[in-house]
Amino acid sequence: MSLQAPADKPQGWTFTYKTRRAVLQLAVLLVGSAVFLTPLGWMVLTSLKPTEQIFLFPPEFIPKPVEWDNYAEAWSQGEFWTYTQNSTLVAALNIAGNIFGSSLPAFAFARLRFTGRRVLFLIMLSTMMVPIWVTIVPTFLLFKFFGWNGTLLPLIVPGFFAVPFYTFLLRQYFLGISHELEDAARMDGANSLTIYFRIVMPLARPALATVAIFAFVYHWNDLITPLIYLTDEKLFTVALGLSRFRNSYRMEMSHMMAAATFALVPVLIIYFFTQRLFIQGIVLSGSKG
């Protein structure tokens, strides 16, 4: 947190304009936080309630007694330790794969001039416009042909090739990076690969952090791909394991909320630490000026 310590501390008792502004900002941030956190707070509180209390009227907010057992039970419903390892593997490989697989083409689209650039870019964009629901079956047949069914490969391999969403995101960001440094480097005989590694990628750290977070969240929460391709419980992901709490007849609400809270924690940790990269980004782009 030290990096973000308030720049302007109140000088004596005189509140400067800047200080008042900071206080106002803080107030708005706190009110917003309340709005954003209340539903999540309810989720966490519900996850700690004993079953009888969930159905009380009028609703009671504070769990009494606090049932930590809901978490123990949710955890014991499956091999969650195994699921966590699988999800971590899938998410980690996808983060690496997405960052490199998408930033390379994004670099070409943003910084290089080549024949067919506009057409290829448009084709890439349009592949995002076909709803996945109609490509699931043909993709399944394709992966079955590759012999990938029942393995983690369908969850991992596609991540190493460009994801249009991230490629587009990074391209927009790369376009905003000034050409001065690049031109200077090219004068010194640097090739495009050097420019990519030495100039563009370091400057794009905030955008790469964004891609990393999105990739993590997407693959941590993704249900449909694991559901279709995984049949061996040893390969199940956390999202697939959690989906078992849902059923039409007997709703174990506290367990479900415990499970949802549990799924949120790793995302929270990852995000909290990655968002610091944004701050490093500001230093870099500020200094290049």
Partner: peptide, 13 residues
């Protein structure tokens, strides 16, 4: 294997 969710989509596929 035990599944609970999106069973229709999986079965169709």
């Amino acid at each position: 294997t035990h599944y609970t969710t999106n069973w229709e989509a999986s079965l169709t596929t």
